[in-house]
Every structure is written in C-alpha cells, then in structure tokens.
C-alpha cells in the first residue's frame, strides 16, 4: 500500500510540474520533462527482486503511457529496460544521496537516449543529435536534478513509514505471545 501511495505522489508531482511549465511540441524553446514517476519506479525496483521489479516497471510504464496519451506501450518497454540497466549498475554504488542521484540521473539519460533512438527508428521525427541534446536532453536532466532530491526525500519518508509499520507489527506479535506465558 505504501508503495502505491509513493508512486501516486510521484505522479502527482509530475502533473504539477507539467502544469507549471508548459511543453513546446515544436521545440522552438526548451523542453524539460519531469520524471518523478520514473525515479519512483527505479527506487521501488531497487528494493525488490528482478521479477517483481519487472512487474512494477511494466505497471508504472503502462500508467505513464496512459497519462501521455500514447498509442503504444513504448514507455512501458523503456521503463523495463531502464530498470534492468539500473539493477546492473546499483551493485557498484552505495546508498548515499549523491550516488543515488548519479544512478537515477544516469538511468534517466539512458531512457531519454533510447527514446530518441525509437523516434529516429520510427521515422516520425527529423531531429539531429545536437537539437535533441540542447532542446530536450540537457533541460530535462537539469530540471530533474531538483526533482530527484524531492523524490529521494519522499522515499525516505516511505521507508520510515514502512519501518514504523514493521515495528508495530512486531510489538503486536510479542504482546500476543505474552498472553500464553
């Protein structure tokens, strides 16, 4: 339940940031895409085994496709790939704030790069690498530099809530056994 609440908060944060900064489909200016739901998915996947991680990545990806009015499950596939890539890297990093930020932002860069390759392969877009970097990739990374800290803070609250729930459960179990002493 706490996992679902955490993801809902991440999606809500995305919606609020999207409403504050309107996107420019013509890319005359810069586009920065908030990715709190993506970070939330990666943080959840970190604490689970790889099979459950795939289920969560697929679920969050499908929700992102739905909210983006996407006709196919591109984001679902990208989220699964990103989760698998992140699981390969996370073994080499600890849980400090800085390293978590590096891990999440690097995975975001990989996801954006895969998305760009999908655009090119699909033939729907004529966009050079420099245009993509300057107008989309770098602004997205810069915006999410701030948002990733917020998501990590929300994750800390979630972990504290999980730990408190676990302690209460243990206390209730020990009280139950005391009746039979």
């Amino acid at each position: 339940m706490n996992d679902l609440i955490f993801l809902a908060l991440c999606f809500l944060l995305d919606f609020v940031v999207e409403a504050l900064f309107s996107s420019d489909p013509a890319m005359v200016g810069f586009i920065a895409v908030p990715s709190c739901a993506f970070f939330g998915m990666l943080l959840l996947v970190r604490g689970k085994n790889w099979v459950n991680g795939i289920y969560w990545a697929f679920l969050v990806g499908c929700c992102s496709d739905f909210f983006a009015m996407n006709r196919s499950l591109d984001l679902a596939l990208l989220f699964i790939l990103s989760a698998l890539i992140m699981r390969g890297w996370e073994k080499h990093l600890s849980s400090s704030l800085f390293e978590q930020m590096i891990l999440l932002l690097s995975t975001l860069f990989i996801k954006e790069a895969l998305l760009y390759l999908c655009w090119l392969a699909g033939g729907s877009f004529q966009m050079s690498l420099m245009t993509w970097l300057l107008h989309r990739c770098i602004p997205t990374i810069l915006l999410n530099l701030v948002l990733v800290v917020v998501v990590l803070e929300i994750m800390d609250w979630k972990q504290e809530a999980d730990a408190r729930k676990e302690r209460n459960k243990r206390r209730e179990e020990s009280l139950f056994w005391k009746k039979f002493k």
Binding site: E18, S23, P25, V33, M69, N70, S124
Partner: peptide, 10 residues
Amino acid sequence: TRSAETWNGM
C-alpha cells in the same frame, strides 16, 4: 491537457 512527452504531439 497536453502531455509533456512531446513525441506523440497530442
């Protein structure tokens, strides 16, 4: 609504 993911232009 307008999606921030712009590649589908919806």
